[in-house]
């Protein structure tokens, strides 16, 4: 299939998200993704979550400190709703957690450089 012209492709924004969770092991991307989806459907419903489409792109997490950084992709028009969804995540895999948006970028690379821990 032909790829869409650039002007027709969906526009995304990448949220640099600080993750705080008391975990001894590493944080699984899937666990974070399911917590985000759960929060999104609970807050916005299925159509609302589809409009925001929050997707965890990358996770960096260091267990000894209980802190890490995740990159979450949302639709450009839905950054504020994405922020609300992330605020409603209070546990990941049953462990109390907090997700704090550090900033918003237009590319994954810029997001990691600006808001990453390294």
């Amino acid at each position: 299939m032909k790829s869409l012209p650039k002007s027709r492709r969906p526009r995304w924004r990448y949220l640099g998200v600080g993750v705080e969770i008391a975990l001894e092991t590493s944080l699984d991307r899937r666990a974070l993704q399911s917590a985000v989806w759960e929060a999104a459907t609970a807050l916005l419903g299925d159509p609302g979550s589809a409009a925001v489409d929050p997707t965890v792109v990358a996770v960096e997490f260091s267990p000894p400190h209980g802190r890490g950084m995740a990159t979450v992709r949302v639709r450009r028009e839905a950054v504020e709703r994405g922020r609300a969804v992330l605020a409603c995540v209070s546990a990941i895999d049953g462990e109390p957690a907090a997700l704090r948006v550090r900033g918003v970028s237009g590319t994954i690379q810029a997001c990691a450089e600006r808001y990453g821990d390294g």
Binding site: A84, L86, P96, A97, A98
Partner: peptide, 21 residues
């Protein structure tokens, strides 16, 4: 500290549930 949320996060939640930013 884990249940604390920032002002922008609270404003976004308020807007989403109909309270207004």
């Amino acid at each position: 500290s884990l249940s604390l949320r920032g002002p922008r996060a609270l404003a976004a939640v308020g807007e989403t549930v109909g309270l207004g930013h």
